[in-house]
Computed example of a mutant assay.
Amino acid sequence: MDLLHILKHRHTTKAYDKDRKIPAPVVAQLLEALRYSPSSVNSQPWHFFVADTDEGKARIAKSTSGTFAFNASRVTDASHVIVLSARNTLPPEYLQTLADQEQADGRYVDADARALTHKGRSGFVGLHEQAGDLPAWTQKQTYIAQGFLLLSAALLGVDATPMEGFDAAILSKELELEEKGLSPAVLVALGYHSDADFNAKLPKSRLPEKTIFSHI
């Protein structure tokens, strides 16, 4: 694997081959990439909606009307589309669920370790609650998951399109996100680009190293 080659050749896909689907074993790996994404204090403050049928993608595409119509075909023609949503709150019962899962997965050497971890996580969440920025914080964590998904897709030879160009209110209503305590963060279309994807033919453009790095 040549990581630099992959980084240079992955791109934001502009048009998909709607007849080409991602094999199920590859999809399974992409979903595991999301599940194993890191988050602050292992809060995992997200939920992912996966659309792999025309009906499911059409529901998401409702949010790409009007101003965001340019993204409609990227949703409907892709093999899969994932809605990455963030939790609006992290209540005690959810934090308890995390602790129970960590216990089941063997993360604690003893009861004291569990109590210390739970106290630390609860305290960190409390700081964001007091600051009034918990939803913004959970959105940031969800974008970490997006990064893992995009890189994993490139490593597996799958094209992807991250999209903020959608109507959050429409999508929230369609998926009943508010009732679930969630807010949409970003969409990611996945599949294989078509010949109409002009971006696949363009060279990568990034600022030079000396502009973005300072060695101190």
Rank of each mutant, 00 (worst) to 15 (best):
M1Q: 09
M1I: 09
M1K: 10
L3E: 11
H5S: 15
R10S: 04
R10E: 03
T13L: 12
K14V: 02
K14Q: 11
K14Y: 03
Y16G: 11
Y16S: 09
D17V: 08
D19H: 14
I22N: 07
P25M: 01
P25A: 01
V26H: 06
Q29C: 05
L30Y: 00
E32L: 11
L34T: 12
P38W: 01
N42W: 11
P45H: 09
W46M: 06
H47F: 08
H47V: 05
F48S: 12
V50R: 07
T53N: 04
D54A: 13
R59V: 10
R59N: 09
I60L: 13
S63P: 05
G66W: 08
G66P: 09
T67D: 07
A69V: 08
F70M: 11
N71L: 06
S73I: 00
R74T: 02
V75E: 07
T76G: 02
T76D: 07
D77C: 10
V81Y: 11
V81T: 13
V81I: 09
I82A: 08
V83Q: 01
V83Y: 00
L84E: 09
A86P: 00
T89M: 14
T89Y: 11
T89P: 02
L90Y: 03
P91C: 06
P92N: 12
L95V: 08
L95F: 06
Q96D: 15
L98R: 00
E102H: 13
G106M: 04
R107I: 02
V109L: 14
D110E: 10
D110R: 14
A111R: 05
A115S: 12
L116N: 15
T117H: 14
H118P: 02
V125K: 03
L127G: 10
E129P: 04
Q130M: 14
T138R: 08
Q139D: 14
Q139C: 13
Q141H: 01
L149H: 01
L150H: 08
A153P: 02
A154W: 07
L156H: 10
G157R: 01
D159A: 09
P162C: 02
E164C: 06
F166D: 00
A169Q: 11
S172R: 02
K173F: 05
K173D: 12
L177V: 01
L177H: 04
E178Y: 05
E178M: 06
K180W: 07
K180N: 12
L182F: 06
S183H: 08
A185C: 09
H193S: 14
D195E: 15
D195R: 10
K201H: 12
S205I: 13
P208M: 01
E209Q: 15
K210F: 08
I216K: 15
